[in-house]
Every structure is written in structure tokens, then in C-alpha cells.
Amino acid sequence: MSYAYLFKYIIIGDTGVGKSCLLLQFTDKRFQPVHDLTIGVEFGARMITIDGKQIKLQIWDTAGQEAFRSITRSYYRGAAGALLVYDITRRETFNHLTTWLEDARQHSNSNMVIMLIGNKSDLESRREVKKEEGEAFAREHGLVFMETSAKTAANVEEAFINTAREIYEKIQEGVFDINNEANGIKIGPQHSPTNPSLPGAGGQGGSQGGGCC
């Protein structure tokens, strides 16, 4: 149960792009073909390991519908990471990315890591958005990009873990103020008031797990 860090994520994007399915695949390792429309926000959690450190991810899966937009805005500020999801078989969900991004940038803290995700990569035959387009959009706006399939679980782990790694690296670099809980980062109970300005010896790149634990 103990963890070194706790990160808060949000999942955003148009309705029906598979946000809830991504979360379910990540937390429960299962796929639910028919999913109820998310009302407001739903919570999920899982523990992962980065650099040999236990990291708890708390994820808020938001409703994509316009009607809930004002509610979901309340979650930007306190999140350390966001998964911005579109559906590769529906171009309009890709077209709306700019709006989502503006919204996120406006309401979140400037250090929030945003991962762009093109979901439903298993439906290659119905693809409307090329992978290159997603890559280009991510490059242009400084996001990390990945195509995933909540159905086959392809890249789902990676999407959540890479986002965490990015946040972890930012902490190591001292970009995040981890004492401000409003950033969506918490230090684990037993790790707490060590010197936060002294990042773990593992340092840059976050490559092999250090032998510190």
C-alpha cells in the first residue's frame, strides 16, 4: 500500500473516444465493449513502478459530453498529468483537440504533462486519422504521442506509465514543486519530509532502477 509518490491524472477528450475503456483496461485489465456514458467524473487507481519506486496513480475519468465541460474543468488544476484522447476512426474528435488543449492549458498548472492518445488502433480498416497527423499535432504542441487500443490493450500500460515517467523526470529536475498538493503530486507517507530539492540518485533519464529501495 505504501508508495513513494502519488500522481493525479485526468483523462479528457470527446465523448465516445474510449476514455473510460482505457481506464478500465489499465486498472482492471479488461475491456467492456458496451460502456455507459460517464456522468460527471469517475475515479480509478493503480500502483505502478518507475525506477524501482512505487508510484500510485489516481485517475479521474471525465465525461466527454459538452454538458459536463464546466464540471470537468474543475479537475484540471489539481492534476499532474492528463491523457488527451481522440478516436482514430472519427476525424471530428481529432479536430476538437485544439479546443481541448486550450481548455486544459488555461485551467491547469503550467507543468501538467499532457499525453496525446489516438485510441482504437485495432480498427485499422476504419481509420480516418493517420498516425503521422497525430505525431505532427503532438510535436507542434509539445505533447507526448501514442496510439493505443483499449480493446487489445496495446500501448495502454505504456500510455499511463510513460506519462508517469515524464512527471517523475520533471520532479527529478526540480520543475514540479512537490510540496504544493495543488500540483497533483503527493509524496508517500513514509517518504515525506526528506529534502525534496535533492532528487534520487538515479537522476536523469530515469533509466535503470537505482538500488536505493
Binding site: S70, I71, R73, S74, R77, G78, H107
Partner: peptide, 8 residues
């Protein structure tokens, strides 16, 4: 609920 950051 709908006013920006009201609850926050």
C-alpha cells in the same frame, strides 16, 4: 458547479 473553479 459551473462557475470556473468555484468549488476549488
Amino acid at each position: 458547479l459551473v462557475s470556473p473553479m468555484g468549488v476549488s
